[in-house]
Design a protein around this nucleic acid. Structure first.
Length: 286
DNA sequence: GGAAACCGAGAGACACCCAC
DNA sequence: GTGGGTGTCTCTCGGTTTCC
Protein backbone atom coordinates (compact mmCIF):
# COMPACT_ATOMS: atom_id res chain seq x y z
CA UNK A 1 0.00 0.00 0.00
CA UNK A 2 1.83 3.10 -1.21
CA UNK A 3 0.91 6.77 -1.27
CA UNK A 4 0.14 6.83 -4.98
CA UNK A 5 -2.38 4.02 -4.51
CA UNK A 6 -3.99 5.95 -1.68
CA UNK A 7 -4.02 9.10 -3.82
CA UNK A 8 -5.85 7.19 -6.56
CA UNK A 9 -8.25 5.64 -4.06
CA UNK A 10 -9.07 9.04 -2.59
CA UNK A 11 -9.55 10.55 -6.04
CA UNK A 12 -11.99 7.82 -7.05
CA UNK A 13 -14.00 8.45 -3.88
CA UNK A 14 -13.93 12.22 -4.28
CA UNK A 15 -14.72 12.22 -7.98
CA UNK A 16 -17.29 9.46 -7.55
CA UNK A 17 -15.96 7.46 -10.49
CA UNK A 18 -12.90 6.05 -12.16
CA UNK A 19 -13.05 8.12 -15.34
CA UNK A 20 -13.38 11.44 -13.51
CA UNK A 21 -10.64 10.44 -11.08
CA UNK A 22 -8.36 9.52 -13.98
CA UNK A 23 -8.95 12.90 -15.59
CA UNK A 24 -8.24 14.62 -12.30
CA UNK A 25 -4.99 12.68 -11.85
CA UNK A 26 -3.86 12.98 -15.48
CA UNK A 27 -3.86 9.21 -15.85
CA UNK A 28 -5.77 6.93 -18.14
CA UNK A 29 -8.87 5.31 -16.77
CA UNK A 30 -7.62 1.73 -17.06
CA UNK A 31 -4.59 2.57 -14.98
CA UNK A 32 -6.83 3.85 -12.20
CA UNK A 33 -8.91 0.67 -12.43
CA UNK A 34 -5.76 -1.45 -12.23
CA UNK A 35 -4.34 0.44 -9.25
CA UNK A 36 -7.60 0.17 -7.34
CA UNK A 37 -7.73 -3.56 -7.99
CA UNK A 38 -4.11 -3.93 -6.88
CA UNK A 39 -4.87 -2.00 -3.73
CA UNK A 40 -7.83 -4.27 -3.07
CA UNK A 41 -5.63 -7.34 -3.61
CA UNK A 42 -2.97 -5.93 -1.29
CA UNK A 43 -5.53 -5.31 1.44
CA UNK A 44 -7.31 -8.58 0.77
CA UNK A 45 -10.71 -6.94 0.65
CA UNK A 46 -12.95 -5.09 -1.80
CA UNK A 47 -12.97 -1.32 -1.38
CA UNK A 48 -15.80 -0.69 -3.83
CA UNK A 49 -18.99 -2.45 -4.81
CA UNK A 50 -19.39 -2.37 -8.61
CA UNK A 51 -23.07 -1.51 -8.90
CA UNK A 52 -23.55 -1.32 -12.63
CA UNK A 53 -21.71 1.81 -13.72
CA UNK A 54 -21.53 3.10 -10.19
CA UNK A 55 -18.78 2.53 -7.65
CA UNK A 56 -19.99 2.44 -4.06
CA UNK A 57 -17.64 2.29 -1.07
CA UNK A 58 -17.74 -0.94 0.92
CA UNK A 59 -17.50 -0.78 4.74
CA UNK A 60 -13.77 -1.56 4.28
CA UNK A 61 -13.49 1.36 1.88
CA UNK A 62 -15.29 3.61 4.35
CA UNK A 63 -12.80 2.49 7.01
CA UNK A 64 -9.79 3.06 4.77
CA UNK A 65 -10.80 6.54 3.58
CA UNK A 66 -10.01 8.54 6.75
CA UNK A 67 -6.71 6.67 7.10
CA UNK A 68 -5.85 7.55 3.49
CA UNK A 69 -6.71 11.20 4.13
CA UNK A 70 -4.50 11.29 7.21
CA UNK A 71 -1.58 9.47 5.60
CA UNK A 72 -1.61 11.74 2.54
CA UNK A 73 -1.87 14.85 4.69
CA UNK A 74 1.02 13.61 6.84
CA UNK A 75 3.13 12.97 3.74
CA UNK A 76 2.40 16.49 2.51
CA UNK A 77 3.33 17.86 5.91
CA UNK A 78 6.60 15.88 5.86
CA UNK A 79 7.46 17.25 2.43
CA UNK A 80 6.95 20.77 3.71
CA UNK A 81 8.93 20.05 6.85
CA UNK A 82 12.06 19.06 4.93
CA UNK A 83 11.83 21.81 2.32
CA UNK A 84 13.76 24.46 4.24
CA UNK A 85 10.48 26.02 5.29
CA UNK A 86 10.23 27.85 2.00
CA UNK A 87 6.71 28.11 0.55
CA UNK A 88 6.34 25.86 -2.47
CA UNK A 89 4.06 23.26 -3.95
CA UNK A 90 0.32 23.74 -3.82
CA UNK A 91 -1.90 25.71 -1.48
CA UNK A 92 -5.60 24.88 -1.66
CA UNK A 93 -7.61 27.66 -0.09
CA UNK A 94 -11.32 27.59 0.58
CA UNK A 95 -13.20 30.84 0.85
CA UNK A 96 -16.66 32.33 0.95
CA UNK A 97 -17.99 33.90 -2.23
CA UNK A 98 -17.97 37.33 -0.59
CA UNK A 99 -14.38 37.08 0.59
CA UNK A 100 -13.20 35.84 -2.78
CA UNK A 101 -14.74 38.91 -4.38
CA UNK A 102 -13.86 41.63 -1.91
CA UNK A 103 -10.95 40.80 0.37
CA UNK A 104 -8.83 38.18 -1.29
CA UNK A 105 -7.90 39.52 -4.74
CA UNK A 106 -5.19 41.85 -3.43
CA UNK A 107 -3.93 39.22 -0.99
CA UNK A 108 -3.74 36.57 -3.67
CA UNK A 109 -1.95 38.93 -6.05
CA UNK A 110 0.58 39.83 -3.36
CA UNK A 111 1.03 36.18 -2.44
CA UNK A 112 1.58 35.17 -6.06
CA UNK A 113 4.12 37.95 -6.58
CA UNK A 114 6.01 36.95 -3.47
CA UNK A 115 5.80 33.18 -3.82
CA UNK A 116 5.31 32.42 -7.54
CA UNK A 117 6.48 28.83 -7.03
CA UNK A 118 3.32 28.09 -5.02
CA UNK A 119 0.34 26.93 -7.06
CA UNK A 120 -2.77 28.51 -5.56
CA UNK A 121 -6.09 26.72 -5.87
CA UNK A 122 -9.21 28.55 -4.73
CA UNK A 123 -12.53 26.88 -3.93
CA UNK A 124 -15.62 28.76 -2.82
CA UNK A 125 -18.44 27.58 -0.60
CA UNK A 126 -20.59 28.41 2.38
CA UNK A 127 -19.12 28.25 5.87
CA UNK A 128 -20.41 24.78 6.76
CA UNK A 129 -19.05 23.30 3.51
CA UNK A 130 -15.71 25.03 4.09
CA UNK A 131 -15.42 23.53 7.57
CA UNK A 132 -16.05 20.08 6.09
CA UNK A 133 -13.46 20.71 3.35
CA UNK A 134 -10.86 21.61 5.97
CA UNK A 135 -11.81 18.61 8.09
CA UNK A 136 -11.40 16.17 5.18
CA UNK A 137 -8.18 17.83 3.91
CA UNK A 138 -9.86 18.82 0.63
CA UNK A 139 -8.41 22.27 1.24
CA UNK A 140 -5.35 23.23 3.29
CA UNK A 141 -7.17 26.13 4.94
CA UNK A 142 -10.24 28.27 4.49
CA UNK A 143 -11.26 31.86 5.10
CA UNK A 144 -14.74 31.83 6.57
CA UNK A 145 -17.08 33.77 8.79
CA UNK A 146 -16.93 32.81 12.45
CA UNK A 147 -19.75 30.25 12.75
CA UNK A 148 -22.63 31.38 14.92
CA UNK A 149 -22.62 27.97 16.66
CA UNK A 150 -19.85 28.16 19.30
CA UNK A 151 -18.91 24.47 18.92
CA UNK A 152 -18.63 24.44 15.11
CA UNK A 153 -14.80 24.49 15.21
CA UNK A 154 -13.77 22.03 17.95
CA UNK A 155 -10.27 22.75 19.27
CA UNK A 156 -9.16 19.13 18.92
CA UNK A 157 -9.72 19.31 15.15
CA UNK A 158 -9.20 22.90 14.08
CA UNK A 159 -6.97 25.90 14.59
CA UNK A 160 -7.88 29.38 13.44
CA UNK A 161 -6.90 33.01 13.60
CA UNK A 162 -9.12 36.08 13.00
CA UNK A 163 -8.03 37.89 9.85
CA UNK A 164 -10.51 40.73 9.45
CA UNK A 165 -13.92 41.93 10.61
CA UNK A 166 -16.89 42.07 8.28
CA UNK A 167 -19.87 44.38 8.75
CA UNK A 168 -23.10 42.66 7.81
CA UNK A 169 -26.05 44.67 6.57
CA UNK A 170 -29.62 43.77 5.84
CA UNK A 171 -30.58 44.66 2.29
CA UNK A 172 -34.15 45.74 1.53
CA UNK A 173 -35.97 47.22 -1.44
CA UNK A 174 -35.89 51.03 -1.48
CA UNK A 175 -37.95 52.63 1.26
CA UNK A 176 -38.55 49.45 3.26
CA UNK A 177 -37.31 48.43 6.70
CA UNK A 178 -36.22 44.84 7.38
CA UNK A 179 -38.26 44.54 10.57
CA UNK A 180 -41.54 45.87 9.19
CA UNK A 181 -41.86 43.65 6.14
CA UNK A 182 -44.83 41.29 6.33
CA UNK A 183 -44.82 37.71 5.04
CA UNK A 184 -41.05 38.06 4.95
CA UNK A 185 -38.83 36.22 2.49
CA UNK A 186 -35.14 36.00 3.32
CA UNK A 187 -33.00 35.90 0.16
CA UNK A 188 -29.74 34.15 1.01
CA UNK A 189 -27.11 31.60 0.11
CA UNK A 190 -27.80 27.91 0.73
CA UNK A 191 -28.19 26.37 4.19
CA UNK A 192 -24.85 26.40 5.95
CA UNK A 193 -24.06 30.02 5.13
CA UNK A 194 -22.95 31.72 8.36
CA UNK A 195 -24.25 35.13 7.28
CA UNK A 196 -27.68 33.60 6.76
CA UNK A 197 -27.53 32.27 10.33
CA UNK A 198 -26.63 35.72 11.65
CA UNK A 199 -29.61 37.21 9.78
CA UNK A 200 -31.92 34.54 11.21
CA UNK A 201 -30.57 35.30 14.68
CA UNK A 202 -31.21 39.03 14.12
CA UNK A 203 -34.81 38.29 13.17
CA UNK A 204 -35.19 36.05 16.22
CA UNK A 205 -34.12 38.98 18.37
CA UNK A 206 -36.80 41.11 16.71
CA UNK A 207 -39.39 38.42 17.38
CA UNK A 208 -39.88 37.86 13.66
CA UNK A 209 -39.66 34.57 11.78
CA UNK A 210 -39.08 34.78 8.01
CA UNK A 211 -41.90 32.95 6.21
CA UNK A 212 -39.54 31.42 3.67
CA UNK A 213 -35.98 31.49 2.36
CA UNK A 214 -35.15 32.01 -1.29
CA UNK A 215 -31.74 30.41 -1.92
CA UNK A 216 -29.49 31.89 -4.60
CA UNK A 217 -25.86 31.41 -5.48
CA UNK A 218 -24.43 34.90 -5.97
CA UNK A 219 -24.65 38.32 -4.39
CA UNK A 220 -25.49 39.88 -7.76
CA UNK A 221 -28.54 37.63 -8.05
CA UNK A 222 -29.48 38.12 -4.39
CA UNK A 223 -29.37 41.92 -4.57
CA UNK A 224 -31.17 41.94 -7.91
CA UNK A 225 -33.98 39.88 -6.37
CA UNK A 226 -34.18 42.20 -3.37
CA UNK A 227 -34.26 45.27 -5.63
CA UNK A 228 -37.12 43.63 -7.53
CA UNK A 229 -39.03 43.23 -4.26
CA UNK A 230 -38.47 39.51 -3.67
CA UNK A 231 -37.49 39.91 -0.02
CA UNK A 232 -34.73 40.90 2.38
CA UNK A 233 -31.12 39.76 2.14
CA UNK A 234 -28.01 39.83 4.29
CA UNK A 235 -24.64 40.74 2.84
CA UNK A 236 -21.27 42.16 3.87
CA UNK A 237 -21.12 45.91 3.30
CA UNK A 238 -17.70 45.54 1.67
CA UNK A 239 -19.09 43.33 -1.10
CA UNK A 240 -22.04 45.61 -1.81
CA UNK A 241 -19.90 48.72 -1.99
CA UNK A 242 -17.17 47.10 -4.03
CA UNK A 243 -19.54 45.72 -6.65
CA UNK A 244 -21.75 48.84 -6.45
CA UNK A 245 -24.70 46.65 -5.72
CA UNK A 246 -26.14 49.12 -3.22
CA UNK A 247 -27.60 51.61 -5.74
CA UNK A 248 -31.05 50.03 -6.05
CA UNK A 249 -31.55 48.94 -2.42
CA UNK A 250 -31.40 50.24 1.14
CA UNK A 251 -28.81 48.96 3.62
CA UNK A 252 -29.56 48.53 7.34
CA UNK A 253 -26.88 47.89 9.94
CA UNK A 254 -27.37 44.88 12.24
CA UNK A 255 -25.67 46.37 15.28
CA UNK A 256 -23.19 44.28 17.26
CA UNK A 257 -24.60 41.06 15.80
CA UNK A 258 -23.54 42.26 12.38
CA UNK A 259 -19.89 42.66 13.29
CA UNK A 260 -18.53 39.23 12.37
CA UNK A 261 -14.94 38.05 12.41
CA UNK A 262 -13.60 36.28 9.36
CA UNK A 263 -11.28 33.44 10.35
CA UNK A 264 -8.45 31.65 8.63
CA UNK A 265 -9.12 28.03 9.63
CA UNK A 266 -6.90 25.00 9.14
CA UNK A 267 -6.90 21.42 10.34
CA UNK A 268 -5.02 21.15 13.63
CA UNK A 269 -1.37 20.32 12.98
CA UNK A 270 -1.77 20.51 9.20
CA UNK A 271 0.53 23.46 8.64
CA UNK A 272 2.95 24.20 5.84
CA UNK A 273 5.30 26.96 4.82
CA UNK A 274 2.86 27.93 2.06
CA UNK A 275 0.03 28.22 4.57
CA UNK A 276 2.17 30.13 7.05
CA UNK A 277 3.03 32.62 4.30
CA UNK A 278 -0.67 33.09 3.54
CA UNK A 279 -1.42 33.58 7.22
CA UNK A 280 1.33 36.19 7.46
CA UNK A 281 -0.30 38.11 4.62
CA UNK A 282 -3.84 37.80 5.97
CA UNK A 283 -3.33 38.52 9.65
CA UNK A 284 -2.18 42.15 9.24
CA UNK A 285 -5.59 42.80 7.65
CA UNK A 286 -7.17 42.49 11.11
C1' DG B 1 -26.18 5.17 -28.75
C1' DG B 2 -23.22 6.91 -25.42
C1' DA B 3 -20.81 6.82 -21.13
C1' DA B 4 -18.21 4.32 -17.91
C1' DA B 5 -15.70 0.30 -16.45
C1' DC B 6 -12.96 -3.60 -17.67
C1' DC B 7 -9.40 -6.47 -20.16
C1' DG B 8 -5.15 -7.74 -22.54
C1' DA B 9 -0.94 -6.67 -25.08
C1' DG B 10 3.12 -4.26 -25.44
C1' DA B 11 6.51 -0.66 -24.02
C1' DG B 12 9.24 1.74 -20.75
C1' DA B 13 11.13 2.45 -16.14
C1' DC B 14 13.10 0.66 -12.28
C1' DA B 15 15.07 -2.49 -8.83
C1' DC B 16 17.78 -6.32 -8.04
C1' DC B 17 21.44 -9.51 -8.87
C1' DC B 18 25.82 -10.81 -10.46
C1' DA B 19 30.21 -10.61 -12.84
C1' DC B 20 34.10 -7.77 -13.45
C1' DG C 1 31.86 0.96 -7.81
C1' DT C 2 30.14 0.01 -12.41
C1' DG C 3 27.74 -2.05 -16.22
C1' DG C 4 24.77 -5.58 -18.19
C1' DG C 5 20.99 -8.98 -17.79
C1' DT C 6 16.60 -10.10 -15.93
C1' DG C 7 12.24 -9.76 -13.73
C1' DT C 8 8.59 -6.90 -12.05
C1' DC C 9 5.73 -3.07 -12.05
C1' DT C 10 3.24 0.65 -14.08
C1' DC C 11 1.71 2.87 -17.84
C1' DT C 12 -0.78 3.61 -22.36
C1' DC C 13 -3.39 2.03 -26.16
C1' DG C 14 -7.05 -0.19 -28.32
C1' DG C 15 -10.77 -2.94 -27.96
C1' DT C 16 -14.80 -5.07 -25.36
C1' DT C 17 -18.50 -5.24 -22.10
C1' DT C 18 -22.10 -3.37 -19.40
C1' DC C 19 -25.74 -0.49 -18.39
C1' DC C 20 -28.67 3.66 -18.57
Amino acid sequence: MDLSALTIFRAVVRENGVTRAAAKLNRVQSNVTTRIRQLEETLGTDLFIRDGRRLVLTPAGETLLPYAERLLALAEEARHAVSENRPQGRLRLGTMESTAASRLPRVLAAYHQRWPQVTLELATGVTRALIESVRTFEVDAAVMARPIEPDALPAEQFEFVPVFEEELTLVTPRGQHPATATNLTLVAFEHGCAYRSYAMRWYEQQGIRPARVLELGSYHAIVACVAAGAGVAVAPRSVLELARLDDEVDLHPMGELGRVDALLVWRKGHVSAALNAMRDLLVPMK
